[in-house]
Amino acid sequence: MGKQLITLTVNGDSHEIAIQSHHTLLDVLRNELGLTGTKRGCTAGSCGACTVNGDAGEAICSCLSLAIEWDGRSVTTIEGVQEGSELHPVQDAFLEFGAVQCGFCTPGLIMTTKALLDVNSSPSEDEINEALAGAFCRCTGHIKVKKAVRKAVEMLRDRAAGNAG
């Protein structure tokens, strides 16, 4: 089976990668680029552990997306969320408000939350629930996760206000 060359931008870095047509975005991120922060879960789109953000910041199950479709496009992974040595407010909120336990689902949950808050700065309870419906957490019961999402909303709002001021 021949390989094809694609250009993929990940967290701002451009990579030329030779891939096989059946390789998923998840395969490429983890196996070719060594970005193992994106987790390999069910590989069937039902757990959300592999969630990354696409060109428009949307939440993508990287296990269900073929790498070939990403030629010339860009993605953000969990490794690209932190701003320098500072945690992003979503990361901060998850850490501070006890939304992290075993941590396996955490990168996917954070990418899911970031995708929501990037386009919706004041989500309703239903919108938070809907966004999180595809992200499975076995440890926390989602309770502190939801609390952390609401805290992240406040932290992002404070930060925006601070920047404006």
């Binding site: 970005l35 994106t38 490794e79 850490l95």
Partner: peptide, 8 residues
Amino acid sequence: GANKVSGR
């Protein structure tokens, strides 16, 4: 926690 929220 910091490692867990940052993919490390």
